[in-house]
Simulated scan of single mutants.
Amino acid sequence: MAPKRGAGSSQGPKAKVARKEVVVDPLDQAVGEVLSAIKRCEAPEEQEKLLLETCPIALRTLAEGRNPFAAQVFVWVQQLLTEYGSAVAAKEAKAKSVVAAVDDRRAEAAKVKEAAHAIVGDCETKLSTAQGARQLAQDELKRKTAELKATLKDRSDAAATEAKIQGTIVEIESVRALVMSSDHETAGFKKIVSRIVSQLKASGGEEGLV
């Protein structure tokens, strides 16, 4: 005989327990949002404490049923939130202005950097050109120096040759004078011949005497 099942046993799957929905009172939600906003306003500690304690009562009371103090609390809350909103808007505007200024400076810095790169490139080009011109000038200076040295040497050689020629002319004139004043049989004629031989040797003509 099969055992009997207990009375509390169930053959099918366990039924899911329906989650009970929590109904939030819109007024409570609105009051909570206002209280959170008051905390974010960073008001002085005493003012914040007063508003957090009195605001829920003032907000839950209709305008026509509020006592003067509750009405004043409501005004304080409005004023605090308005000032905080204005301050937040001002900070946001200032932040946007700062960001715009930073962007402008970045754009200006980029332009300056680009101009600097262009200047550097231009300077490098000019430097390269100047170096090339300097090399050409140095080469030209070397060439002119060599030409000048050659010219000076030629002038020196020419001056020496001219001096030698002048000496020869003087010597020849002297010999000519002796020849004109002497006969062939005198000692003067021998002296003349000796001078002619010396002159020929000095001028490289001694080979013709052999």
Rank of each mutant, 00 (worst) to 15 (best):
M1S: 15
R5E: 02
G6S: 10
G8K: 13
S9N: 07
S10K: 10
K14H: 01
E21Q: 13
V22I: 11
L27K: 08
A30P: 00
V31N: 03
G32K: 07
E33C: 08
L35Y: 00
S36A: 10
I38C: 02
A43G: 06
E45N: 02
L50Q: 01
L51R: 00
L52I: 04
L52P: 01
E53Q: 14
C55W: 01
L59I: 08
L59W: 00
T61V: 03
F69E: 06
L80Y: 00
L81K: 01
E83Q: 11
Y84D: 03
S86T: 08
S86R: 13
V88T: 05
V88M: 04
A90W: 00
K91P: 01
K96Q: 13
S97H: 09
A101I: 03
R105G: 01
A107M: 05
A107Y: 06
A109I: 15
E114R: 09
A116Q: 07
A116V: 04
H117V: 11
A118E: 10
D122S: 11
E124C: 00
K126V: 00
A130N: 05
Q131G: 03
Q131P: 02
G132N: 15
L136K: 14
L141D: 04
K149D: 09
T151K: 14
T151D: 05
L152S: 13
K153V: 08
D154E: 12
S156T: 11
S156P: 03
A158Y: 09
A159S: 10
Q166K: 11
G167Q: 15
G167M: 11
E173M: 13
R176L: 15
A177C: 02
V179R: 02
S181Q: 13
S181Y: 06
S182A: 10
A187V: 14
A187T: 07
G188M: 05
F189P: 00
I192Q: 03
I192H: 01
I192Y: 05
R195V: 03
I196V: 13
V197A: 10
Q199V: 09
K201T: 12
S203I: 07
E207F: 15
L209H: 08
V210D: 05
